[in-house]
Each structure stands twice: as C-alpha cells, then as structure tokens.
Design a protein around this nucleic acid. Structure first.
Lengths: 190, 190
DNA sequence: CCTGACATGTAACTGGTTACATGATTCC
DNA sequence: GGAATCATGTAACCAGTTACATGTCAGG
C-alpha cells in the first residue's frame, strides 16, 4: 500500500466514483496518470478494500464505479493515525532561477510571466471550485462548513489551493518588479 | 538530460562544489538522494558538461569538486529559453484531509499540528538562510540584490520559501481554529 | 467523417527510493 | 571503541511517465 492507493481510497470515502473521476480529482494534490490508477484500483479490489459496480450510461461509455468497503475504511482510519510524510515539491522554475544570471532581463521576465499566467489560471479554477462547494453546502458568505460536514475537507483544501496560488502569484509579480525595465511590451501601443 | 541534471548544472553555475554539497542544496526545490546524484554527475562529466577536480581535505575526507564547462553553460542557456514544466507537488496530508471525517477532532488537530510544526521549522531555517545571504551580499535592511548580482537568485528563492511557509502555516492555524474544542491541552494546567 | 471528451486497460521505459557497501575524520 | 558527519559509489526495487491499444458517444 503506497500513498497514492490511500489517496484513492480517501477520495472514494467521499463518494463512489470511477477511475476516470479519481484521476481528475486527485491531480491537484498528487499527480498521477490513468495508467497508474487503473492497476492500483484492481489491486485494491483484490485486497477487498474497494468494490465496484459496472454502470451503463446512455450518453457516455459504461464505467466501473468503485466504493470503499468497511475493511477499506478501517485501513483509512489506521493510515490517518500514522505520521504523515513531508510534502514533496519538484519545481523546475526554482532550479532555473539559480542560473538566471546567464540570461537577460527580458528572458527572465518571460520565464516568470509564463509561471504567473499558470498561477492566474489556477486561481480562476479554484475560485470556481469554491463557489461550487459553497452552493452544494448551501453556505452563507464567509461561513465555513463545520467539522463533520462532508464538505469540510473539500472546503479547507480549496481554501489552501487559493491561498497558495495567491502567494505564488504575488511572488512572481514581486520578482518581475525587481527586474530592470527592458523593451516595452506590445500593450504600450494600444 | 532530465530536469535534475539541469538543476545540478544550474547549482554548479553559482560555484563549483561536490556531489554531497549539491545534494543538500537541491533538496528544498527538487528532492533527490545521493544515489541519484552521483551517477548523474558521472554522466554529465562524460558528456563534457561538467568537469571535476579531486580536492584533498585535512579535517574531512577528500572530495570531488565539480564545475560547469563552457559547453555546460550553453546547455543551461538553451534550457532557460525552453518552456518550464508545471510544478509537481505531492502531499499526503491533502489526501488525508479528504477522509478527515472518519477521524475525530482531537486526531484531526494532531494531524494538522504535526504539519504546522514542520512549517515552523522550515520558517526558522529560511529566516537564517536569508540572514546569511544578506550578510554575504552586504545588504541594508529591506534592500534586494539587483538582477545580475550573484545573490539575486538565492535571494528571491529564499523569499519565496519564506512566503510559502508562512502561507502554509497560516492555513494550518486557520484549519485548527475551525475544529471544535476537544480535550484541553497540557499547557492549560500551567 | 473527424475531433474531442469519456472510459479502461497494458507494456516499456525513466525517475526516484531503499538498501548495500566502503571509508575518512572528529568528538565523546 | 562507538556515534555522527562527511564523502562516494552500486544494485535492487518501487513509483511514475510515455506510448501503445481499444472502444463509446456527442457535436460539428
């Protein structure tokens, strides 16, 4: 049992879903391709931690909907009580910044702006997700779901994603502000 | 040539150093063990991107000090101009939070507090690193090194590490504040 | 008819971790 | 003499990516 297996089990504890769904939902917290997920689900099924049901769909191809078993929930409870590994972040941009002085201000700006765009995009996605959760949990402005609510986990996770993206975007903008002014950008002509 | 190879090259462009040094310096941005780094350095040396010199030390064992070649610097310049992969974060705590409702408030608090401690520790480490850089670059309070200074990269990287740790720690404290009050902590008896 | 999203799988390969292996030097 | 840090390396294994492979269904 590796971390990804527990992650799949954890997501399934929220609601039964397909491998395809799991792949999309686990991505922001633990990147994984379908080629890794499908075999793990088969394995979890053999171990009796999950079970599945083939569901026919009329508008889309059929799917296998997985759900956790009682034995799976026991495994999760045990996992929750064990010490958590430190997070692992791998970011090529940080490595590029070590040798940024081999570059010039314009190339450096392009490098950071590319990433800033990525964080702006993430911000928009997570803002939408927050709205979806607020609606589902029928929350008033500024309210948070209480511990025990099925939305508590998703809510605190999306809030984290939002504050991380904001913090990272601010950093990008700060770095760009430190760069010496170079060639004027196209927008100046408008 | 994979990202880690470029990362090693990038660090070596700052100053010549040993595989052992590289391992420690690359960790915060790209986790890697010595068993992955040493073979890659041999490989980079065969490709002519780095060269090494065996340096005898009296107080410690001998070491191999690597440095980038002109060909290595060319490879770095080319790498800088290529699009950067999105960062990959893998965090088991986020996965645990999905099924936090299988737990109880006290266990949840312990889970988050463990991580909060981790971020507090990181914060202290990066604060010290910032001071070290400030001294080396002989910077006044609040000043930043200019683009082109050999300290520019390290400075913006440590500032990022600091703001990320602060943001993550704030999130942990916010989550704990949402948890219902459970058994009183030991400190209440003082 | 073709593209794109939905859906599931396997095989080959690369990246990364754990374990094995060795040895110098310092400090207790 | 033993533990801790410094220093380098290899081998076996596990995790993760890329490529191969197939098929359904909707919309242009």
């Amino acid at each position: 049992m590796n971390t990804l297996s527990y992650g799949l089990l954890s997501l399934l504890s929220l609601n039964p879903q397909s491998g395809y769904d799991l792949m999309h939902r686990i991505q922001p917290f633990w990147p994984a391709k379908h080629s890794q997920i499908y075999p793990l689900l088969s394995c979890l099924e053999k171990e009796g931690l999950v079970q599945f049901e083939t569901v026919a769909q009329t508008d889309k191809p059929d799917k296998k909907v997985y759900s956790v078993t009682e034995s799976g929930r026991d495994a999760l409870r045990k996992w929750l009580s064990e010490p958590t590994d430190a997070p692992a972040l791998r970011d090529a941009l940080m490595l590029k910044i070590f040798c940024i002085s081999l570059s010039n201000p314009d190339a450096a700006r392009a490098l950071i702006e590319e990433r800033a765009g990525y964080y702006r995009c993430k911000l928009d996605i997570f803002k939408e997700k927050l709205e979806t959760i607020r609606e589902k949990a029928s929350l008033e402005e500024e309210d948070a779901p209480v511990f025990g609510s099925p939305y508590f986990g998703s809510y605190v996770l999306v809030q984290r994603a939002l504050s991380s993206s904001r913090s990272d975007l601010n950093w990008c903008e700060w770095v760009v502000s430190l760069l010496p002014p170079g060639k004027k950008p196209e927008t100046e002509h408008l």
